[in-house]
Amino acid sequence: MFKKEFYKFKDIYLLLVVLIASFLAYLAFSLKDMVQNFGALSVNLSFLFKKKFTFFHLDDMNLIFAFVIAVFVFFHERISGRLRLSLHFPHSSVRNIGFIIMCGLLFVFFVYFVEMMLLNIILGTVYAKEIMYVLNYSLSLNYIFGFLLYIFCCGFIIEPVKKRAIVNFIVMLGSIYLYYEINPDIYALDSFYANDLGFYYMGIVALYALSAAFIAFDNYKRGYIK
């Protein structure tokens, strides 16, 4: 069953993991360069007083990663109506649907988890813990939004009613816009704590994304449309 899910996105997953690893390596080498050239003190101070820090688009990459994996997961179910097969496995529909959603999400989570560990090791040797808190907070929101984008994809790929699929897609675009207002890269933040309420907003977006996903599956089950 895991293979059935993993093989949907195996190639792109590996490609994206390599890309993320490259972004991570670039960030690590850039930081090393900065420390060597200006010293850790200057690196810390310029973070504190000038918000001089960038993830070098690693945060964008994380979102793209979750989105692309989700597209592969759900399109593979949608093509030729394979979802009909998946729903017929001898388990409850909730379990069958849950498996489809959670499996890919677990693979995304694994990458995020490893990335966060590595980032904490890399950045934690240079930045004070107060700065690490800001970075981890921003990253956590980034990861959560990645998960939400994943769920959103379900809402517009599985949804058989075109009108609703389009609405879900537009709401997803709107959420991306808001996300970048609330949690852009560190250097672009209006204030370090601009995203203070980020988790609440993520909660609201999660409510929508999850309802849209469940409604999409329910609609699909109630009226299979090719």
Binding site: K3, K4, H76, S80, G81, L85, H88
Partner: peptide, 13 residues
């Protein structure tokens, strides 16, 4: 046992 028109299955496996 269900057989869908066109032998729908997980072609990528």
């Amino acid at each position: 046992g269900l057989l869908y028109e066109g032998y729908v299955t997980y072609d990528y496996l």
